[in-house]
Design a binder for these strands. Structure first.
Lengths: 343, 343
DNA sequence: ATATTATAGGAAACCGGTTTCCCCATGTCA
DNA sequence: TGACATGGGGAAACCGGTTTCCTATAATAT
């Protein structure tokens, strides 16, 4: 059984208050007394009970993280960034998978809030009424990833998704392609999902290429669904020159389906993804994609929420990080460019 | 500011004790009193402070999870399984990345222990003295994943790694290959790393194929290092017929390097991995590998630790789950077998 | 030498719950 | 009608820390 401060006090022959003072050196303690206390602490291998401290301080040094699915590569890289910063600041993270269900998201947010987390990092792609009312009334700081929503005590971290989608689409259009399709996220995804689609459409329009709704499919952002849609696309004989897939993971599935139908990438069809997960350089062919600074997003999300927890002044409540088009082999029809050796 | 039980008691005109009784119906309360209390609870939107409850109950309903790296696919799938079960039982998980450093592992284990987690799931591939002394003295139940170590209050979840490596190596040997290499985990990996290597060697020996140490390379289980080693292998002109890579993620890097050197898989060299992460079916070519029931391992690890927390009797302290050789295109030199459509 | 000020450290209150202990008001039985 | 069991609910102790408040002693000033 773990030792308590009372036991330490007893064997050191002092009061609990003195032990506490030694632990936190919150008030001066005579060196010889301090020594006795330290001896006692060592003898009992005493560690202060952090639950009791949390109760007094009303701080748990814990950050709640609500994500869609930890097994998704984008998410796990993000969480890694969050954890790194949190740990460096002495915080732990509690992670909860919502599996994309809005009801579960709400449930998790309330649960974390009730569990006395000091702050929350919330990754989502849509905000329903219940989300908004939670965000409005929450008494802890929150970092919202991928969503822009203006509310006090909220910081937003994201990239410009519609511009990013516009850029990658334009890359295809500049090659002269007129039959470029897209696999988009489900319609409920009001933010990233919708924005990327908007960017795609806008690019078509600005380049004077008519929008063809047959060229657009909707998938659930995982490899399995990417595969399903990839097969569909090939079977429908749409003769696409290029395909922009809203997420790398799904793109892998789609490419696999294309290969399984006997076509070649990029020779028969060029493919681009979105995210630049680590795997994208190692797929064969390596995947052209839109790089989000995922690690940085995670770190910033954690840093911001910690700053808010610790009462620091925030001057920027919405952070839009730069994206980057990373050209690789999946769109290199003309010249085969081998992957630059990862350092 | 969140309401307290005292405020509820006041506006309901009862004592704190009565409110507590209503909340937990631990003792009968007159219906009309209960009603008044419930009204007050609703009026104040009162939620009992879980830190205070934890202090009384000496239970935090939290499980600590120490892993190497959440961005590793094997790990994130494992964690997903853990989280699922934990959530179903009303537990939260705190995750901590050790980045494979033994010192950090110890630090994290102690920290979690001190943070009053009710149990720990620990994924590691080696146990140093300090680990063992922690495991011996910890006052909370622990699930050890991937390691077999006999100690009270410890449950082990793993597959038979050496048999699994033996099986996949034998698959190559039965094809008549005599030049089959392996990329193994670092030497510090006493468990999974060493065991998989032992299985490889044993298979060679049992099939009368001499062991060639030039055919064995060591890598850090990530795609980047897999790439580095892949290049090395090709440059060394070892003329390997097959390559068994100790982890799928690393295998992807290795395959990429092989392609970048202008060789073909499986035509020029066959490759097999280990783990069967979801990505393995979607790589091109799909990867032959040893399937570990990762999700199940995570779920069992959580389930076991929860059973222990809740005082249930455990009859099996060491669980060795079955593995399975999954043959796919990366070893299908002879016949091209398209990927069976994922349902 | 006396008055004043620091300093060390103890007692007790507090954080927000749960639970034991006890009392009071009923209801039941003889 | 008196003795006794029963159920409801309040006061207080408790979980394990931190902090305020206060006192006794030592140090400094006059």
């Amino acid at each position: 059984m773990a030792a308590t401060i009372k036991q330490v006090a007893e064997i050191a022959g002092v009061s609990k208050a003195t032990v506490s003072r030694v632990l936190n050196d919150s008030k001066p303690v005579r060196p010889e007394t301090r020594e006795r206390v330290l001896q006692a602490i060592k003898a009992l291998d005493f560690q202060p009970n952090s639950t009791a401290r949390s109760l007094v301080f009303k701080k748990s040094r814990t950050i709640g993280v609500v994500i869609t699915d930890i097994a998704n590569l984008f998410v796990s890289v993000l969480v890694k960034g969050i954890e790194k910063i949190a740990f460096n600041h002495g915080y732990n993270i509690i992670i909860c998978n919502s599996h994309g269900s809005a009801e579960k998201e709400i449930e998790l947010l309330l649960m974390l809030h009730n569990k006395q987390v000091d702050g929350i990092v919330f990754l989502t792609s849509r905000l329903k009424k219940e989300h908004k009312s939670f965000l409005r009334e929450a008494s802890v700081p929150i970092s919202l990833v991928n969503v822009s929503y203006d509310e006090s005590n909220l910081v937003g971290i994201r990239i410009d998704n519609s511009k990013a989608a516009y850029d990658i689409t334009s890359y295809f259009l500049k090659k002269g392609f007129t039959r470029g399709g897209m696999i988009r996220a489900p319609l409920e995804d009001q933010y990233t999902g919708q924005e990327r689609f908007d960017g795609y459409r806008q690019a078509l329009q600005d380049h004077g290429v008519p929008f063809n709704e047959d060229f657009v499919k909707t998938g659930t952002l995982d490899a399995r669904d990417g595969y399903r849609i990839g097969r569909e696309i090939i079977k429908e004989n749409l003769n696409l020159e290029a395909l922009f897939v809203a997420c790398d993971l799904m793109a892998f599935g789609t490419m696999k389906a294309i290969f399984d139908q006997g076509l070649k990438i990029p020779d028969d069809i060029e493919v681009a993804g979105f995210d630049d997960v680590p795997m994208s350089s190692y797929y064969h062919p390596s995947l052209t994609t839109v790089r989000q600074p995922i690690d940085k997003m995670g770190r910033l999300a954690a840093e911001m929420v910690i700053n808010l927890i610790e009462g620091k002044k925030i001057d920027q409540w919405e952070i839009v990080l730069p994206h980057e088009i990373v050209l690789r082999d999946s769109t290199a029809k003309d010249a085969y460019k081998p992957l630059p050796t990862p350092e």
